[in-house]
Design a binder for these strands. Structure first.
Length: 407
DNA sequence: TCCTGTTTTGAAGCCACAGATCTAT
DNA sequence: GTATAGATCTGTGGCTTCAAAACAG
């Protein structure tokens, strides 16, 4: 990950793909993400122009530079003279937009054709009929100045997970970005957890983005672990059981949520519980989309300095924390941006949430991630006897290429 | 309420082999 | 330090087996 495109190793990298955890030049970005429907759905954003390693989430108008969360904090912290700089939120995109289309998303974005690589110029000739980039899915709207900004109603952001300006851990909502530092925004809690007075309300987004097979938190008996009872969760899910709500196989999700609730009694325990999976670099993206919900919604406390991420390796940086979905701001002791739970929501809302969850549970697919497609392809065509692979040339009772074949 | 038998569910293990990774020279 | 060869490890899918859970009587 760095200044040079991770794919071609030739062109300067411009965009960051969370799903691939890769920095790509525009041409490779379009090339790679036009491969299939799934890759088109990868959420990408600009690369931080300062560290060249993290996804940018804000654009400093004064400095004309895209910054990641860390660099923005360092450059525009309240203690710096640049804290009053006007900043724009940088949104994510999917599909295969051209640089011109990207410039329509980001008013500041422009790349001259002369600056394009050869392959990009070739790609320019390609038909855009398959292009499916749709910034509106990410709740992007254009204001009068042409600046892209994120809809305050984060619930619009379904399916896009924690992409773009919805970066978890970012305390400041879009409105805050354009305000001079130091102003008080009483709508902070609204921006932080819109319409969310308890986890059940935002479960729709939560469940949409669960890919819990990548998570390996295996904690049980939270009462034992945290030494507290799960007041809210017990009340919220007393009928269905929390296992039912999250799916019994998704114990880790349940764990995260329960941990979030239990954090009210033991925030240190929560972070310690989350940290092992968080430090697992297997899939930062999955962390962003899965665990952050619970991580970021634990009740605000004033003693965050007691949080411990000691399990992270010495190589971990602030950027790692970002990828883990845990705000570096949080790590630095600032208050989390989610308001505390405000008690159980109405029974009607709850029942609606449960009903929707059950519907989704029916259709949920626990897809297995295939790490080596070549091995899968080979296994798919390998002959078997009672499900077991057989040596080439031996008799077999099942030929994947000819299912009617039988011994 | 407890016990027993049946059914359902889920996890583990097996197999061959290409490719990745490690080790020695 | 680099290149090569050989050894070892890993992961892949369909099926069977077995244990545990769920259920009924």
């Amino acid at each position: 990950m760095g200044y040079i495109c991770d794919f071609c190793g030739n062109q300067p990298s411009t965009v960051y793909c969370r799903s691939d955890a890769a920095c790509l030049c525009l041409s490779c970005d379009r090339n790679v993400h036009s491969a299939n429907a799934l890759s088109k759905r990868h959420s990408r954003t600009l690369l931080c122009e300062r560290c060249n390693s993290q996804p940018a989430f804000v654009r400093c108008v004064e400095e004309r530079v895209s910054l990641c969360q860390n660099c923005d904090l360092m450059g525009h912290g309240t203690s710096t003279s640049n804290s009053t700089h006007r900043r724009q939120t940088i949104n994510c995109y999917s599909g295969c937009p051209s640089s011109a289309e990207l410039s329509s998303i980001w008013s500041f974005f422009w790349q001259s054709p002369a600056g394009e690589s050869t392959c990009e110029q070739e790609l320019r000739q390609m038909s855009m009929t398959e292009t499916s980039w749709c910034p509106t899915e990410n709740a992007i709207s254009q204001n009068d100045t042409g600046d892209a900004e994120v809809n305050r109603d984060y619930n619009v952001d379904r399916g896009s997970s924690w992409s773009g300006s919805s970066i978890p851990g970012f305390r400041s909502g879009p409105g805050l970005l354009d305000q001079p530092a130091g102003t008080t925004d009483t709508s902070l809690s609204e921006l932080s957890c819109p319409q969310t007075k308890c986890p059940g309300v935002c479960e729709d987004d939560l469940y949409d983005d669960f890919n819990m097979d990548e998570i390996d938190l295996n904690l049980e008996k939270y009462e034992e672990l945290f030494g507290v009872t799960l007041n809210h969760s017990e009340e919220l899910f007393e009928n269905d059981g929390i296992d039912s709500l999250f799916g019994s196989k998704d114990m880790s999700a349940t764990d995260s949520y329960q941990g979030a609730v239990a954090a009210e009694g033991s925030s240190v325990g929560l972070v310690n519980a989350i940290q092992p999976a968080c430090s697992n670099a297997a899939s930062a993206d999955s962390m962003m989309s899965n665990k952050t919900d619970s991580i970021l919604c634990f009740p605000a406390r004033q003693d965050h300095s007691s949080f411990s991420f000691s399990g992270l390796t010495g190589e971990s940086s602030g950027g790692d924390y970002q990828d883990c979905g845990a705000s570096s701001m949080l790590l630095m002791g600032e208050a989390p941006w989610c308001p505390p739970f405000e008690g159980p929501f109405s029974s009607a809302t709850r029942s609606d949430a449960v009903m929707r969850y059950k519907e989704k549970k029916k259709t949920r697919k626990f897809e297995k991630r295939v790490r080596y497609a070549s091995r899968k392809a080979r296994a798919d065509v390998r002959k078997r006897v009672k499900g077991r692979f057989v040596k080439a040339g031996d008799d077999y009772d099942y030929d994947p290429l000819n299912p009617t074949r039988s011994c």
